Simulated assay, not measured.
Amino acid sequence: MKKKYLSIDIGGTQIKYGLFDRSGNLIEHNHIATPTRGQDFLKAISKLVAQHLDTIRGVAFSVPGRVHPDTSVIDFGGALPYLDGLNLKQVLTKQFGDELLVSVENDGKSAALAELWMGNLLNEKDAAAIVLGTGVGGGIILDGKLFRGVHYQAGELSFMSAKNGSEKYGTYGSAVLMIQKIARHFHFSDLNDGATVFELINRHEPYAYQIFTEYCQRIACLILSIQSVIDLRKYVIGGGISAQPIVADTIREQFYQLLHHLKLDNNGVTPPAIVRAHFGNDANLYGALYCLLSSQVKLKEELTYV
């Protein structure tokens, strides 16, 4: 009997994938570069599934863009426009048969589900996950459940206005663009060399640390905007850069400074907890898996077992 599951997280620069057992344990973890063309993307996904077909019972996807929960159709596609209108469930079912279980969930919502399932939002009733990457993803938990919104786009933080409406948070709050700005200043051959950039940040190199602090202030402003409207208890910070403790710590510091600057720290806004996501950059993989398990009535026993 096939007892494993393949979880695939589609990002703007990388496609990460993980092979899980029925208890939610990550067995295999790897990544490939995200293709720039839709045709090449489908070939890459089909190849990944085919490589694991003999051992997996289902495939779970975390994707950018709005996902219709009933149809699995993706709208917009974020940094990957070729995802717009794509139904991955239909494509894979046609290719591999309907015995292969397939689910598709938005990346920010996947991160929130992972943290709610087994992470730093466990047992939280009102909270959110903020995922810092190519854009800014998000997932909102209200009354212990994922909040999707009327049009299934709740948590699309990349759409929020920044700089008096001249920019949106998808670019203004992009961790990738922040890293590239620092890398370009120091003439790195690889502008996406986040590890070396954070070496500079962690030792407080003046230019790198200034750009990073300004970036964290932007995310703190974003959190304040959300907090003013829905008053959550906790925020978890995810995405690749969240593996660096300085990220959540500095966002928290900037949030408190922002409250003080706006004179909201006494009788204004009650500060929420701001912590690093338990699953870090793998949150989307776990959350997508949770979505697959919880959406299948026949898998309730396995979900309870986990």
Results as ranks from 00 to 15, higher is better:
E28Y: 13
F41L: 08
M178D: 01
G133R: 03
Q95P: 04
V306M: 15
Q257V: 01
L6F: 04
G280K: 05
K4V: 03
A162F: 04
H204V: 10
Q39D: 15
L146W: 01
Y286S: 13
A111I: 10
F188Y: 14
K3E: 14
D265I: 02
V102D: 01
A112S: 12
G268W: 03
E156G: 04
A277P: 10
G138V: 11
Y235V: 02
K163L: 12
A243L: 07
N284S: 14
Y286I: 14
L83K: 05
G12P: 00
G11H: 01
V102G: 05
G97P: 01
K300D: 15
N266M: 01
L26F: 04
N123S: 13
G11K: 04
H261A: 13
V91N: 07
E205D: 04
G238S: 07
Y172L: 08
M178W: 08
G280P: 09
Y82R: 09
H278N: 12
P81I: 08
Y215M: 02
T171R: 15
L177M: 11
F41R: 07
K234R: 15
Y256L: 10
H185I: 12
G155W: 00
G108Q: 06
I251L: 09
L303F: 04
G85N: 11
A208T: 06
F159I: 14
L42D: 08
S294P: 01
S225H: 03
R148A: 13
A248M: 03
D107E: 05
P245G: 10
T71N: 06
D107I: 08
E253T: 15
A111W: 02
L258R: 02
A79Q: 12
E205M: 03
A243K: 12
V73T: 13
A273W: 00
Y209V: 08
D98M: 03
L48N: 10
K4W: 00
I223A: 04
D193T: 10
A175E: 04
T196S: 15
S103H: 12
Q244Y: 07
S166Y: 11
L262P: 00
Y5A: 09
I246T: 14
L42S: 11
T270I: 11
G287D: 04
N266D: 11
D75G: 15
L177S: 09
V197F: 07
N25M: 12
C216D: 01
N267D: 06
G139H: 06
D126G: 09
Y207D: 05
V229E: 03
S110F: 02
K47E: 12
C291I: 05
I201D: 01
L303W: 06
L299Q: 11
D98G: 13
A129Q: 05
F61W: 05
V102W: 00
A283V: 11
V104N: 10
K2E: 09
I179R: 05
F76R: 12
G165Q: 03
L26K: 10
S62V: 06
E28L: 11
A50F: 08
E253I: 15
N120L: 08
R148Q: 09
L100I: 05
T250V: 06
S161P: 02
L122C: 12
Q14I: 12
V236N: 02
P245I: 05
S103N: 13
T171L: 13
N266K: 08
R148K: 15
C291H: 15
L259A: 02
